[in-house]
Structures are given as C-alpha cells and as structure tokens.
Amino acid sequence: MGQFILRRFGIMLLTALCLTFIVFFLTNLPPNLEKLAKTQGNMRMTDEQVENWLANRGYLQPMPVKYGQWLGILPGWVIEGTDGKLRGKCLRRDTPPEAAPRFCGVLQGDWGWSTRFRDEVATIVFKRLSLTGWLMLAVMCVMVPGALILGVLAGMKEGSRLDRTVSTLSIATTATPEYVSGVIFIAVFASSAVGLKWFKGTATSAMDDITFANFTLPVVTIALYGMGYIARMTRASMAEVMTTQYIRTARLKGVSFPAIVMRHALRNALIAPFTVIMLQFPWLLNGVVIVETLFNYKGFGWTLVQAASNNDIELLLGLSVVAVFVVLVTQLISDIGYVLLNPRIRIS
C-alpha cells in the first residue's frame, strides 16, 4: 500500500514536470511574449521596443535555461537593462540586490511573480484556490448525497413511477448547461422579474463572507448539472445490482426490502459511480469558470481565464501544477476507495 502511494506520487511529479514544460513552451512562444510585452508595457510599442522590453526582463534567454530558472535548478537571471535599471528574477522591490538569493525557483518555494495581478503567484493561487475550494465543497455536499439518494431511489425499483420521474429530471438537469440554468435561477430567485428575491444574484460578497443568500445560487447551478449525471450512473448501477442473484438470495432469506437496499445492494451499486464522482473534482476545478464569471465569484477558474488571456506565464504554471495535483490526488483517492468498496480487488 505504502509503495503504491509512493509510486503514485512519483507519477504525479513526472506529470507535473511534463505539463509545466508544455505550458512553459507554449507561453514562451514569440507571439505570446510579444503580446505580454504589449499588454504590460504599451500597446503601441515598436518591434524594437518589444525586443528591448523582453530582453531587459530575461524573456529572451534560451527556453531550457528559463525553465531551469523557474524550477530553481539554475541561478535566477540578473540583467542590467538598456534603460540602465538592474532587474533580476530574484530581486524584489523591498529587498536590496545584494541580499537577494541566487536561486529562486519552485524548489526554493518561490512560485514567481504574476504580471497580471502584480503579486506573488503563491499568494494568488492560495487565495483563489481556497475560494473555489469552498465552492467545490459546498457543491459536493449538495451534489453527491443528492445524486446518490436519487439514483438509489430510482434504481431500486426499475421502471416504477419514481424511477421514471427521477430519470426524466436527471436528464433534464444534465441537458441544461450552467449558463442557461444560472440565468434562469437569477431571473427567478434573485431578480425582480418574478419577484422571489430569495437569494442574491451575485456571489461577490461570498468571497469574504459566505451566507446562505449569496452562495446558494452558484452552488445549486453547478450541483444540478453534475447531479443528473451521477444520479443516472447510480441508477443504472443500482438497477443492475437489484436484478442480480445475490439480491434474490437475500430476498428469499427473508430480508426486508429496506435492508436489502441498504445492506446488500448499496455497497455494490456504489462501485461504478464512485469513480465518476471522483472525476468530478478536476472537472469542478476548471469547469466552474462559467458559474464563477456568471456570479462574479473570483475563484480558481476565473483566475485561470485571466492568466491565460494575459499570457501570465508564471501564474499559469502555478495553476497547472495545482490542477495536476488535484487530478492525481483525486484519482489516488478514487483507486483506494475502489479497493475499499470492492473486496475482489486487493492491494497486495
């Protein structure tokens, strides 16, 4: 087991390395750098000015060197620019150049500087991730139990009226994209169009203080979309389990119907949806962009969009590492949980 987790972490490191290099390569392509110079400096810079601007900030070094500096295995650049100013990767405004460390990469715990937000990458990622984290947590708390209960209820008596109602509902919610359901919710529950001013149409205030009023709509919007999907999976799995012979054995042992569902069917029926639920985490991390924008909640997805549209290299890299981490950790949990649910699979 320990060896297995260790191996998984090795894979995670390797994936993170590969992915960051790809992101690094793409964001350092000349047209992207030019765009960066023009958004940071001046939109009307000449080609020469762009060249100078980039050279002064170390962007024109060879790609592997720059990547090494970001990782922290090569010493950070220090360039005295054409404008006479001394700039360096490791120089910060508040520390004198002499006191600055030679290496300042990821290995040293320095995730770099965001050009878009003019702040430390680590601070931004931490702040935005925690905001999205709260959203994800709330969504999961609503979506997973809801979906499982609906799925189990629908699947335990296949073809019953309850089954058909739940199935229709789940198809409807899954078929409605968030930007449609979000808009409808705002119109119904938050605007004066219908008059039910139960919730707030924006979640901006939730960034500081989460309340029932400002957080419900974004959570429900995301949860509904995912819920239908997981409920369908659970229903199919449950319906299949309910037709198996061991359920008949239990029935003919004299076990009552609720006990059959809870004790005999549930664990077997959860094996398939569990993997799907775990796959929802990475999806939530990046897929919340629309909802975050719609409700003006500046979380991880929103930051990702900002970083990408401004070619904010180091912020993008930081975000990618987080994404890889979340994906692989959830997959690890999913594998371990799968083993716990399914006794036929064992880690030797």
Partner: peptide
C-alpha cells in the same frame, strides 16, 4: 441455487 458465486453477495 445453481450458481453459488452469483448467489453470494460479493461485497
């Protein structure tokens, strides 16, 4: 029953 494997709950 006919198939012992299928008639015992695997989990």
């Amino acid at each position: 029953y006919q198939e012992p494997m299928a008639s015992l709950n695997p989990a």
